[in-house]
Structure formats: C-alpha cells, structure tokens
C-alpha cells in the first residue's frame, strides 16, 4: 500500500493540461474483396486457407490433410469423427503435450493482418492453440473484417478471462534474421473459411 501511495503521489505532483482522447472513427474503412485480402495476407505470413462449402467439407478436408497423423483434438461437434472432443474444465494442460493437430473455431478474422480472434470460450483450454504442433481454425466467411478497428468495434465489451489474436504459425527470426516457422507454438496454421450452403 505504501508504494502505491508513493507512486500515485509522485504522479499527482505533476500537473498536465488536459488532453482529449482522439476520435477513432477516422481510422479503418477499407473497401474491396476482404476474403481475397485475408487469404493473401495469411499466405504472406506463413499460413494457408481453404474456402469450404459446409461443415462436412471441413471434416473431409481435415482427413485429407492430416488423416492418420497422430492425436487430433477439437472443440467442434461436427468433427467428432476426426478428432477427440475437448471440453472446457476437464483439461490438465500438460496432458496436451502430444497433440499433433487442434481444430477450433475463431470468432472474427482480420484481412489487413491475417489474424483471427479467439476468445477462451472457443479454445477448450487456453493452452490448446499454442501447444499443438499444427493449428486449424474455422471462420465463417461473413466474419472476415477489414481492419483491427472493425474487430474491436465488434468485440466491444465482451467478457473473457483470456482471448487472443493469432496470425499465422509461431515464428522466430532470432538467429541472424532468418525466418523459421514453428518456434514454440504450432508449426503450421490453417484457416478454413466456412461458406454455409443452405
């Protein structure tokens, strides 16, 4: 408590003229094909995407890409055939150390930087999108937004214990600026853009 008082008092000693907060409405507003832009950016940062018509097509694509390649976990019920279901609450994170592939859902995707927004409730457990060797994320095509401003406008005051923007596979360039994918997190990142057919 003592130090808190000390710090706040030290700050309060300096009087500053009031500075208004700027208007964020001046920012963003990009027109054009956002799906194409998202795909191009994601590819440029080392990820890949597939546009698929319907949930069954996703299950099929997963089998095609990763069939028989080790432990697969998912939070999505329509993928129960291809991976073990994980439910929030019953996970000891260390036990996920051998997960080869995790397939989860993202709420939004951002075209300008290739990132997807995943709140904790969609992860199963916070560690899931980080500990797997490969990460696949499903995003509805209508959830692809132009900029970060659009994303935060929609996120609004959503409550979460943890949430993350994830843009491509884990990477590092700490050795002589040489880009290496798969630093500590997933080695690959795949985004399934879901086009719902009626």
């Amino acid at each position: 408590m003592d130090s808190k008082r000390k710090i706040l008092d030290a700050i309060a000693r300096h009087k500053h003229p009031p500075v208004p907060l700027p208007d964020l409405d001046r920012l963003g507003f990009i027109s054009g094909d956002q799906v194409a832009a998202f795909t191009a950016t994601l590819t440029a940062i080392g990820g890949r995407s597939f546009q698929l018509g319907g949930k069954m097509a996703i299950a099929e694509k997963v089998r095609e890409l990763w069939g028989g390649r080790g432990r697969v976990i998912t939070t999505l019920d329509y993928l129960a055939d291809v991976g073990e279901q994980v439910f929030p609450g019953d996970i000891i994170p260390q036990r996920l150390h051998d997960v080869e592939l995790a397939i989860i859902e993202a709420r939004y995707a951002v075209a300008e930087n290739g990132a997807v927004w995943i709140p904790e409730v969609l992860m199963g457990h916070r560690i899931v999108p980080f500990i797997c060797q490969h990460l696949a994320v499903v995003v509805p095509i209508g959830a692809i937004l132009p900029t970060m401003h659009d994303a935060y406008r929609l996120i609004g005051s959503e409550q979460y214990g943890f949430a993350c923007f994830i843009a491509g596979p884990s990477k590092t360039a700490d050795i002589e600026q040489a880009l290496v994918l798969g630093a500590h997190g997933p080695r690959t990142m795949t985004v399934f853009i879901l086009v719902e057919t009626t």
């Binding site: 950016t41 440029a44 940062i45 609450g89 300008e112 930087n113 290739g114 990132a115 904790e120 457990h125 916070r126 980080f130 970060m148 409550q159 979460y160 214990g161 943890f162 949430a163 993350c164 923007f165 994830i166 843009a167 491509g168 596979p169 884990s170 990477k171 360039a173 997190g185």
Partner: peptide
C-alpha cells in the same frame, strides 16, 4: 518494429484460469 502486419500472438489476459 519488425515489418510484420502484426505479431503472431496478441494475447489478452483478463484473469487467471481456474
């Protein structure tokens, strides 16, 4: 900083897990 459109992870911590 590095000429990337965004860092791979922008993690929002808002409370401990159970």
């Amino acid at each position: 900083g590095t000429g990337q459109p965004i860092t791979t992870y922008s993690s929002h911590f808002s409370g401990p897990r159970q």
